[in-house]
Design a protein around this nucleic acid. Structure first.
Length: 527
RNA sequence: GGCGCCGUGGCCAAGUGGCUAAGGCAGCGGAUUGCAAAUCCGCCAUCGCCGGUUCGAAUCCGGCCGGCGCCUCCA
């Protein structure tokens, strides 16, 4: 029985609305994916991460989720890349798609049901265009086909504008268009360009039509949630709506969700600094302000490097700690802070192991017999719980309430910290790390940690061990060496030779190994 | 010019009509420790400015100041 408490901010109405799916119990989500002409940057990950979280949450809440992310693999920019690199367009697409998918995986985005490519849906696209022409919402002109915006009385409803407002001149194909706001559904091929056969001659699809065609194929004429970056509202989504709704005579999607854009922090730490634009008297003021925009700033690239340096989990947490609709400023300070915050959890997981003798992370075989909670109704803690479990139950409720409210991951993550605090306090107060710990306390603690794991999993966090710094070296050998060092240091301490013991600890710290002296003995960790 | 968004402590960031304004980072004090690390406890903001509505507003309305996005195939 799916829950009915979820509210979603709908760009169409500019308000939060109760989430009621088109078909009870099922949810169809379409997210505009990348045009695969170059390597992905960090900004490309915002949508996938938030929608991956949305998909996890809706599944958890009892819905059967189908999530489609398209790959646009035919486009002017792809053609340009292919020309520049002297390789076929399809090869550019294959390479960049692989890069994109690898990045998604690294960030724990694994909820996608379908990833259709435009070039593999050419029949659907051509059929769709044909239907629009039949219904007189589109016209062909000299091998091109355009959508006739004037014929669509609702055109502009998503972004609140009308064709008359458009200032554009209509671009290169203006002379063929009936009005400047008309956009291409099909573009006639120029010599040497990749092309497909169509009733209008050799050519390729325009930008927006692939999404209308593929969303219909996989999700139907009306589906639940359509997502994408805020910058896609116009013209992309506006045009998708025009195409689909004129073709079908019914709404394309019930809820339109748009994630905020990311900006790069400048070296000075000032984000929107305007000093440069002031001095640039005659002016290209537009360019100065673009520096901070991720998608157009050169310095912000290197997602691969970023992931290699920090790990996908940190980037994921970094994105999720802010509400998805707000702007995220991306910079080294924020990453560092996120890393410090995550370390609190990792440190706790080691503690959990010390208390229970088990790893915090579940292995595949664990998932069967450990009661992993993957459903909201199954995760309820007994209503008569008290003490630890009662506290955790309250925080769990708080977490879910925040997620219900337009997927407030920023608020929800903070509840994770509160639960962490409750758990740590419980370990201290009941001396769970000592040998004489009460088994009942340990059991209760384990149950509480399960709830923590349940909630973190909704955010896609802490599902599997992150390869921490130093990866590649044999953990086993490292451990043996360090055990030896620890023994020597323990001997030194027993002899009150603190000069030696401190030297061992300090020099290990310099190479990235931290020693912790605990009642039960000394332990080491990286970082 | 048109259409929108945003402005909460040193930094990041929840809260959108009502207990003493979450949480994280940084900082300070304490517990613990041989010293540390980790952890725990405590301290640290009246919400850009002005006016209005209301018994009551960070939260609603108006104005102003500041920042940003789209109107250009950028997620």
């Amino acid at each position: 029985m799916p829950v009915e408490s979820i509210r979603i901010y709908n760009t169409l109405s500019r308000t939060k609305e109760a989430f009621v799916p088109v078909e009870p119990g099922k949810v169809g989500i379409y997210l505009c994916g990348p045009t695969v002409y170059k390597e992905a940057h960090i900004g490309h990950m915002v949508g996938p991460v938030i929608f991956d979280t949305v998909a996890r949450y809706l599944t958890y809440c009892g819905f059967e989720v189908k999530w489609v992310v398209n790959i646009t693999d035919v486009d002017d920019k792809l053609i340009a890349q292919a020309e520049q690199r002297q390789i076929p367009m399809a090869q550019v697409a294959t390479q960049m798609t692989a890069d994109y998918c690898a990045n998604l995986l690294e960030m724990g985005v694994d909820q996608i049901t379908e990833m259709p490519r435009a070039t593999e849906n050419m029949n659907e696209i051509i059929e769709f265009i044909g239907q629009l022409i039949d219904r007189e919402f589109a016209y062909s002109a000299d091998g091109d086909v355009f959508f006739d915006v004037v014929r669509n009385s609702e055109y502009g409803k998503l972004t609140n504008r009308s064709p008359d407002d458009q200032q554009g001149e209509g671009g290169k194909a203006a002379s063929k268009k009936r009005s400047p706001g008309d956009f291409a559904l099909w573009k006639a091929a120029r010599p040497g360009e990749p092309s497909w056969e169509s009733p209008w001659g050799q050519g390729r699809p325009g930008w927006h039509i692939e999404c209308s065609a593929m969303s219909r194929r996989f999700l139907g004429e009306t589906f639940d949630i359509h997502g994408g970056g805020l910058d896609l509202t116009f013209p992309h989504h506006e045009n998708e709506i025009a195409q689909s709704e004129c073709c079908h005579g019914q709404p394309m999607a019930k809820y339109w969700m748009h994630n905020g854009l990311m900006r790069a922090s400048t070296a000075t730490g000032k984000v929107g600094g305007r000093s440069e634009r002031e001095t640039d008297a005659d002016g290209d003021t537009a360019e100065a302000s673009e520096e901070t925009k991720i998608s157009r700033s050169k310095g912000a690239g290197g997602l691969r490097t970023l992931l290699a340096e920090h790990g996908g989990e940190l980037i994921r947490y970094f994105l999720l700690r802010t509400h998805y609709r707000s702007t995220i400023v991306f910079g080294p300070e924020g990453l560092e802070e996120a890393g410090t915050a995550l370390d609190k959890f990792y440190t706790f997981f080691d503690r959990y192991t010390r208390v229970t003798g088990k790893s915090f992370y579940l292995t595949e075989s664990d998932e069967e017999d450990r009661s992993v909670i993957q459903r909201r109704d199954a995760g309820e803690l007994a209503s008569d719980s008290e003490g630890l479990l009662s506290e955790v139950a309250d925080l769990r409720q708080s977490f879910l309430t925040k997620m219900d409210d337009d997927f407030n991951t920023g608020g929800a993550t903070s509840d994770l910290f509160l639960i962490l605090n409750v758990l740590n306090r419980y370990v201290e107060q009941n001396r769970l790390e000592e040998n004489k710990a009460d088994p009942d306390h340990v059991a209760q603690f384990s149950r509480a940690v399960e709830t923590f794991r349940e909630l973190a999993a909704l955010l896609g966090l802490f599902l599997k061990p992150q390869s921490r710094a130093g990866g590649g070296a044999s953990e086993e050998v490292l451990d043996k060496v360090l055990q030896l060092m620890i023994q020597m240091r323990t001997d030194a301490r027993a002899n009150k030779d603190f000069a030696t013991s401190d030297r061992i600890r300090d020099e290990l710290a310099e190479v990235g190994v931290t020693l912790e002296d605990r009642k039960e003995g000394t332990v080491w960790r990286l970082g």
